[in-house]
Amino acid sequence: MEYYRPQHLKRVLQLLGGGKGKAKLIAGGTNVIPDLRGKTIQPDALIDLSHLKSLSYIKEGNKSIRLGALTTIAQMASSKVIKNYAPILSEAAQQLGNPLVRNRATIGGNLSDASPAADTAPPLLALDARIITENATNNKKAIPIDQFFKGPNQTVLKRDEMIKEIIVPKWTSPHIKTAYIKLGLRNSMSISVISMALWIDVEEMFCKQIRIGLGAVAPTPIRALKTEEMVTGKEITPDLIEACGSELKKEVRPITDIRASAEYRREMASVLFKRLIERVTFEQRE
């Protein structure tokens, strides 16, 4: 196996495009190293991104926050900008893995690993984030996050393409509420059993727009589009919440694994939705 430690993005992309057998990008290593050890991946070369300091940043713009792909989860968890403008992303970062893992794991790695349970995905889906990629011929793309995941550990990224940054819109309207829940088997170091992030534009119980991001209930992190459609443009009533819960159970496609059964996950999708809706509409009903 060969090892490269490029100092610049340009060189990374050259290496990816160079076609030197199978090359694997490694950032924090918290996913790649167990895969190497378990021989579930056997690359010909490792391209170590840990020295690409230029891709480690959290920048606040007028309308969005830009996160460099190499930003660590620990940096996100302690960022005031993220806490202020994307609190559900901040919560998810604070609950990912454990402190030792958060110091290494990166946002780009969490997304390109594309675990169905990727912790940063549900909030980013709810926040309607975009993923900026670049390839060997310096072609840049802005991929809406709901089009990024293709299957368990599969994304739309081509072999010569990598994530450069993530753009998270700043939602500043007072009518926009967000909430997040992750269910795990324990508090620390747990892979989520199911997680849900909610973004809603709501005024006096009337829902103008809603986005529901879900983790660990389908082959990829998903949006619950059918359920979203049921709520959009409607008055939120107990009956509607009940109906949405039933729709969500149909919309998710969970599996049974060592952490939970498919039935449990399906049931909890509906329960979490009710909890989150109650949380975000609590002030409206006061």
Partner: peptide, 18 residues
């Protein structure tokens, strides 16, 4: 766990070359 540049990390999840 070891401190890498002052931050605690799992040495098993870090490449030596990193």
């Amino acid at each position: 766990a070891v401190l890498l540049n002052g931050k605690p990390v799992n040495a098993c999840l870090t490449l030596a070359l990193q």
